[in-house]
């Protein structure tokens, strides 16, 4: 009998110790899933924007909507990378957490470049649009170069 109680007690203790660990790791996986989702969404809008700006498809009426979406989705990129979301299914480099200031700067630069593109879209000047769009791409690439591993 005592053995059984001790046994139960041990299970209980183990459970109490293990629980936060389990829940933290689950949470971290979800954070990563969310981040990937948002990044994919940005990529989708980027692809659409690119095709319109480069004159490959005629959907010019949709352009503002795509750029707007990108602007909102990139308002706070560092928030997508909280502490503890640095392990598991992620290609984020350690530099994201080791050099938060550089990362923040790069993220802001990207968001600013999208704001400029949005202004150009609202202004309706094609060459301005192409030039600002190029800057957006450079921002994406710059950040991925320093802060993301290849597949």
């Amino acid at each position: 009998m005592t053995i059984k109680i001790k046994h139960l007690f041990m299970i209980g203790i183990t459970g109490l110790i293990a629980m936060p660990v389990v829940s933290t790791s689950a949470e971290s996986e979800d954070l990563i899933k969310y981040r990937r989702g948002v990044m994919k969404a940005i990529g989708g809008h980027m692809s659409a924007t690119s095709l319109i700006v480069r004159g490959k498809v005629p959907h010019k009426g949709q352009l503002k909507q795509h750029v707007n979406a990108m602007k909102m989705l990139t308002n706070d990129i560092p928030a997508l990378f909280p502490e503890g979301s640095d392990f598991g299914e992620t290609r984020a480099k350690e530099a994201v957490w080791e050099k938060p200031e550089d990362f923040g700067k790069a993220a802001n630069k990207s968001n600013d470049s999208i704001t400029n593109l949005l202004k150009a879209v609202e202004g309706g000047n094609d060459s301005e649009m192409l030039a600002t769009f190029k800057k957006v791409g450079e921002g994406c690439k710059g950040c991925h170069k320093d802060f993301r591993e290849k597949e």
């Binding site: 710059g142 991925h144 170069k145």
Partner: peptide, 20 residues
């Protein structure tokens, strides 16, 4: 020229260096 893939993603890491 740009690092932009047709799906709107941008290459990172080594390939971004090759391009840049």
């Amino acid at each position: 020229k740009t690092g932009e893939r047709p799906d709107g993603d941008f290459s990172g890491s080594l390939m971004a260096e090759v391009i840049d």
